[in-house]
Design a protein around this nucleic acid. Structure first.
Length: 717
DNA sequence: CAAACATTATTTTTT
DNA sequence: ATAATGTTTG
């Protein structure tokens, strides 16, 4: 690749950003203005033109997926010569440094990373241990407060309580940190905080990394929190070559501690900073851009900017008013079907919603029309109970002090270890001042029933055996072995129910992911490396677009993505903007930015939907049209604010559920044949498509629930 | 000790 | 409405 290629592929401003390799650079980049392109080309430029060793480059992105994509793109520009570049999320980057140098701040390299579920369990225990009631002291609230402090680099020792409540809080916080320490675990926030501490307090470590990283680049800078900002300041401190890219209009993570202020402060902290504005949008039509800009212009706390495009005017934005959420889902499904029938491929279509709970209805509607789709986010793969169980085994193998993991799996599958024996073990472990697992190794369990003693012994033997396996085998093998040896597989196989089958399916996917990890990480295919990577995956990281599938996700998850056609649903006051946000101006403005992000995902078409009635918590609520719709100039909208699409579409969910299947229809009454159970009569059909759940009465085996996807059924009549 | 049953929180967004 | 949690019963 030649220098002229850079000027060919980039516009003037982008090129300027790429060429400004020395010193601090702030890139203010509007939606769709090619900021990722700038970063990608900049890394390629550093490597190809300046001959910089990739190991001297650190690129930080918001998701693992973004990091992966960036790596791929740079690699294709560079022709593969990228070995050793650090490209990852803040957490992945910190994880790497902590693994190598964490010992200096007393962190063993085999630490566990606790996600919010683990955190909650731990905090609940901490509260109970302190003799308090978890109902009065809500673990989630307390963890939220702790997180807020950690994001601002305040740790438990720094906190000076004054009121009585604060004193209680401080006590719990300290106890929580102590508990983490005993478990040899860190939470997400600690990963950043501890890394900052490590760099601040150990000059030799700081020197090592800040000299190593001659060039630091940060994507989605508007979503960094204070701790993350400090971190990159420390890392880029020696060479001072730092490029940050962000858009204040797309700041949608302030609830997680992100501070747009970082963008404003950047020129103050780096007085020589070069400021580059990318205002040409390459993604959307004029109409879409105008609509999005008009809405976000209502925010007071923002940098004025003018996005423009050479693109066509494009279609108007379609607006639909619907009687309820069923009609909404149905209309979306129908409209998508029309689009697909007229040649749009599913991967170019997305349905966006404010909250995950909305995915269910949409999914049903799409399945009913047999539209292939994927839901991104929601219950993440690594949050599923069976996956968490196996991950707990794996963590325990590596980190025997991890009591949270221990408690999770000691009796899963059943080993006859109940509440009582666990209480006893806890007592012993507290007395000995060591973890549950180590207490178990120590042995004094005479006063337990033989049954539970046997259970503990079996468990101990199992973990020890797996530890040996982990020493000599790669991640894939260890996962497979754990599944088999723990009895988890046979437990599910014996169950044989439809849920168990789905779980088996997930677990086989886990094995695959372990195998793939081992194959793609020849330098360290161990289970330990795998656990760390797996702990840091998010919902969007699982997104693998295929040709046909329509994408369903929250607006948050959609950030950074683009589609030809975008449906935004649930545009009602109280839902989008969401209820709580309407009382505070800053929160309302964040909702507006969120809407801005949603609209600017679209290249060609935007459809906005709102329903006059919708169910919350089971009961019906009447909603008004979202103010964001009214903030779009009327001439950009079509489908008028008054009219409704043809009535026939909206006949409520038909009560006769008929499932089309292999050319025939399955409905209550149908006689089906099962390879094992024989013939039976369908009693009920729930759900649609391959996910439909059938209740079938078999004369010899009774009534069974079967998942259509797995049950090998054929229709008799 | 485990399954069945009743009750309660949950719906903002996630590394 | 549903999932997660807590309580009772066999």
């Amino acid at each position: 690749m030649s220098l002229s290629k850079f000027s060919e592929d980039l516009n003037d401003m982008q090129l300027e950003g790429v060429l400004a390799t020395e010193g601090p650079v702030l890139v203010l980049a509007g939606a769709g203005s090619g900021k990722t392109r700038l970063l990608t080309y900049k890394i390629a430029y550093l490597v190809l033109e300046l001959g910089i060793d990739p190991r001297a480059i650190l690129g930080v992105t918001f998701t693992n997926k973004a990091a992966g994509e960036m790596r791929e793109r740079v690699q294709s520009l560079c022709g593969g010569s990228l070995a050793g570049v650090w490209l990852g999320t803040f957490h992945a980057t910190c994880g790497k440094m902590l693994r190598m140098d964490g010992d200096k701040i007393g962190l063993a390299e085999n630490y566990s990373i606790y996600d919010d579920l683990d955190q909650k369990r731990l905090m609940k225990e901490v509260i109970t241990e302190a003799g308090l009631d978890p109902k009065e002291y809500d673990p989630k609230r307390i963890l939220g407060a702790i997180s807020g402090f950690k994001n601002r680099l305040v740790c438990a020792e720094d906190f000076v309580p004054s009121t009585k409540d604060e004193k209680a809080f401080a006590k719990l916080w300290t106890a929580y940190q102590d508990a983490l320490k005993t478990n040899n675990a860190v939470d997400f926030d600690d990963m950043i905080l501890l890394t900052v501490r490590l760099l601040q307090e150990h000059e030799e470590v700081r020197r090592k990394y800040s000299r190593k990283f001659q060039y630091v680049l940060v994507d989605e800078f508007q979503d960094t929190n204070h701790a993350q900002y400090e971190l990159i300041k420390l890392l880029s401190g020696y060479h001072g070559n730092i490029t940050v890219v962000g858009d204040d209009d797309q700041s949608i993570y302030s609830w997680r501690g992100a501070e747009v202020r970082n963008i404003l402060e950047f020129p103050d902290d780096f007085t020589s900073a070069k400021i580059i504005r990318l205002e040409q949008n390459y993604r959307s039509t004029t109409t879409i851009l105008k609509a999005a800009s008009s809405v976000v212009a209502n925010n007071s706390e923002r940098h004025e900017k003018t996005l423009w495009t050479n693109g066509a005017e494009g279609d108007k934005i379609k607006l639909y008013k619907l009687p309820d959420e069923y009609a909404e889902a149905k209309l979306i499904a129908r409209s998508i079907k029309d689009e697909i029938d007229s040649g749009t491929s599913g991967k170019d279509i997305a349905v966006l919603y404010r909250i995950n709970a909305h995915s269910r209805l949409l999914e049903e509607a799409l399945t009913k029309l047999q539209i292939p789709h994927i839901i991104i986010g929601g219950i993440r793969f690594f949050e599923r109970a069976e996956i968490k169980d196996i991950m707990a085994y794996l963590r325990l193998i590596y980190n025997p002090d991890d009591d949270i993991s221990f408690s999770r799996v000691v009796n899963m599958p059943r080993r006859g270890v109940g509440l009582k024996s666990m209480c006893r073990l806890k007592e012993l472990s507290r007395a000995a001042g060591t973890s549950l697992y180590r207490t178990l190794i120590g042995g004094n369990l005479e006063d337990l029933t033989p049954n539970s003693r046997k259970g503990f012994a079996d468990f101990l033997e199992l973990i020890e055996e797996l530890r040996l396996t982990a020493k000599k085998s790669d991640a894939g093998e260890v996962v497979a072995q754990t599944l088999r040896e723990s009895g988890y597989l046979s437990m599910l196989e014996q169950d044989g129910g439809l849920e168990a089958r789905a779980r088996l399916e997930n677990l086989s996917e886990l094995v695959n992911s372990g195998i793939e990890f081992a194959n793609t990480h020849p330098e360290d295919p161990s289970i330990n490396a795998y656990i760390i990577e797996a702990s840091l995956l998010s919902g969007i990281d699982e997104y693998q677009p295929d040709e046909e599938s329509v994408s369903l996700m929250t607006v948050h998850a959609a950030k950074g993505l683009e589609f030809d056609s975008v449906y935004i649903c649930g545009l009602e006051e109280g839902l989008f903007p969401i209820g709580r946000s309407m009382e505070s101006n800053s929160e309302l403005e964040e909702e507006r930015r969120l809407f801005y992000v949603a609209v600017t995902r679209a290249r060609k078409n935007v459809s906005l939907m709102w329903a006059t009635s919708r169910h919350y918590f089971g009961d019906e609520r009447i909603g008004a049209r979202s103010r964001f719709i009214d903030e779009i100039p009327e001439e950009l909208l079509e489908g008028d604010k008054k009219t409704m699409p043809p009535e026939e579409i909206f006949q409520r969910h038909s009560s006769s559920k008929v499932e089309k299947f292999a050319g025939g229809a399955i409905n209550p009454g149908t006689i089906v044949e099962h390879p094992f159970f024989g013939r039976g009569q369908v009693q009920a059909v729930k759900g649609w498509g391959e996910n439909a759940v059938l209740t079938v009465a078999f004369p010899k085996y009774g009534t069974k629930k079967l998942l259509l996807k797995y049950a090998d059924l054929s229709i008799v009549r």
